[in-house]
């Protein structure tokens, strides 16, 4: 892990991966959208509304995967103090918040015609809303300190604490009666979704994953460059202070 924690090596690796991951996400998402919108059957119960699922479910998956990434890198940052791990956690939270927001909004748009309500306070929906607030809290906390390293530490503890929510989201539909339906794909045995509908769903999920990787790499790269800039500015200020008495 130390090998990849080196920022210079990370930058090289990121520039090598980025063209591929961005091309792949564009390809997979456009193929996924084509199948989702034009080349997949309507559902026997939901009709055309089923197509919302092709955006809703991958964003929910990615919202949780992104949080797990954030929690893992927070743990690495707390235990091994890798500077890169803090930057990954910082870079991940706005992306995860966006996926969560997309999931909540698309779910609400589906819920209105299907359930008959925009929102229900059942365990799945509520725990997903809490995930959204965890992301917002993480973003606020990380910037709440003058010293970035203190903000990173506080946010890392928040990210780890909030991780208990992830299994709650996943299993809420099995543990309690919820309005939200149980899992169709990520369960033991055969997925209870038709292959013609599973294809666009998996294409979209893969596309979203590539998009997440692309976004994360770009954001971490920006954070590395920003911290370098900060360091340069600090030395400039320092030398300027030293230089002032000489010029006067």
């Amino acid at each position: 892990m130390h090998r990849f924690a080196n920022p210079a090596r990370f930058l090289r690796l990121a520039s090598a991966i980025l063209p591929w991951s961005s091309a792949l996400s564009a390809l997979l998402i456009s193929a996924g959208l084509y199948f989702a919108l034009f080349h997949s059957p309507a559902d026997y119960q939901q009709g055309e509304t089923v197509r919302i699922m092709y955006v809703h479910v991958p964003s929910a998956w990615l919202a949780m995967a992104c949080y797990s990434t954030m929690a893992l890198s927070s743990a690495v940052a707390l235990i091994w103090k890798h500077p890169l791990a803090d930057l990954i956690a910082k870079a991940a939270s706005p992306i995860g918040a966006s996926f969560t927001f997309l999931c909540l909004v698309s779910g609400s748009l589906w819920g209105r015609p299907m359930w008959g309500t925009w929102w229900a306070w059942d365990a799945r929906l509520t725990s997903m809303l809490i995930l959204f607030f965890l992301y917002l809290g993480h973003m606020a906390l990380i910037n709440a300190f003058d010293d970035p390293s203190r903000g990173a530490k506080a946010a890392a503890i928040l990210a780890l604490t909030g991780f208990v929510n992830i299994p709650i989201i996943k299993f809420s539909v099995d543990w309690w009666n919820t309005l939200h339906q149980p899992a169709s794909v990520s369960k033991f045995g055969m997925p209870s979704i038709d292959p013609a509908m599973l294809l666009p769903l998996l294409l979209m999920a893969l596309g979203f994953t590539c998009f997440f990787v692309t976004m994360l790499l770009i954001r971490v790269r920006t954070e590395i460059i920003a911290s370098k800039l900060r360091a340069i500015r600090m030395t400039q200020i320092h030398t300027a202070h030293v230089a002032v008495p000489v010029t006067e």
């Binding site: 309507a42 026997y44 119960q45 299907m114 008959g116």
Partner: peptide, 18 residues
């Protein structure tokens, strides 16, 4: 006073269901 429909986890095209 309020009735909501609950959807199950099955997704399939109409012709397959029939």
């Amino acid at each position: 006073s309020e009735v909501l429909a609950k959807h199950d986890e099955k997704y399939m095209p109409k012709d397959v269901a029939e």
